[in-house]
Amino acid sequence: MKISEEMVQGITSEKAKWMYQKMCEIRMFEDRVHELFGQGLLPGFIHLYAGEEAVAVGVCAHLDDKDSITSTHRGHGHCIAKGCELDGMMAELYGKATGLCNGKGGSMHIADVEKGMLGANGIVGGGFPLATGAGLTAKLKKTGAVAVCFFGDGAGNHGTFHEGINLAAIWNLPVVFVAENNGYAEATPFEYASSCTNIADRAEAYNIPGEVVDGKDVTAVFDAAQRAVERARKGEGPSLIECKTYRNYGHFEGDAQKYKTSEDKKSHVEELDALKTFRDYLIRQELVTEVDLDEMERSVKEAVEKSVKFAEESPLPTAADLTKDVYVSYETPERGEQ
């Protein structure tokens, strides 16, 4: 693993702890969700982010609540990195009234607007123009906020890729487009579906910076995102970062993944694991002690267990919730008896 041998600018001890904590939260949350799904406790479609933690965390390390992100169907990692509470997330996956979306959205629509998390998305490619819109607000209201669009390699072939990025580029909007190239869209390889070597190569066509980084190396993602976010905040317009990564689980829970090779799987899960390599980096750079890292892992595990308990004990939504929140207001005058 070529995780930086040198200190990466900006990764202070405090930042490093936050990053490792978030990466652990994502990994342990996802591993637990994988188990719960296997036990038949979670309804619906679940797409797990495990393996790709370095992308969400390396990027969100530069954001705060006023910044927005748009996510994908594989959204749990983005949620966690953007500061969403595990309890509310887990309850949402269970379809409980205490979930982040009151049980209305589930895994594929998990969101927390107050944290700037504009939603996982059931529509591949949905996020490009949505991030562009949040960037437009930031520019018009001069909030200094940026918007980040996380998207998959498959989404890069949807027409909205072009429309969203071109719009952000001509209006010079503070948007960072982050490709999570995990090599596959469902069972379709990136190489087959995309007539480009790198998604980031397309940046040139929009006259914006494009950069390919090792998406398993959180320090590399952090570094590239730092430049892109700064550029956006300075009003210099959008950037495109492509993170080469790997999803540890199937496309969705239940996928036999015959299209993957076992060598790839083994090397990604065992040697190139993003948490493992970052942990080694932190110890090597003396940024966090092993004792502290162990303690963090223990407390995250507890927090995840707590979220499961919270979700299980939470109430379900009731009939009155069904037609609530379709609109802000919607009056249908009652017709009086005649």
Binding site: P43, G44, G95, K96, A97, G99, C101, G103, K104, G105, G106, M108, H109, L316, P317, T318, A319, D321, L322, T323, V326
Partner: peptide, 16 residues
């Protein structure tokens, strides 16, 4: 169905 999107929660989808 009522005039609303399809909810995720099984508790709501069943009454939808």
């Amino acid at each position: 169905a009522p005039h609303c999107p399809v909810p995720f929660s099984p508790a709501l989808e069943d009454i939808y």
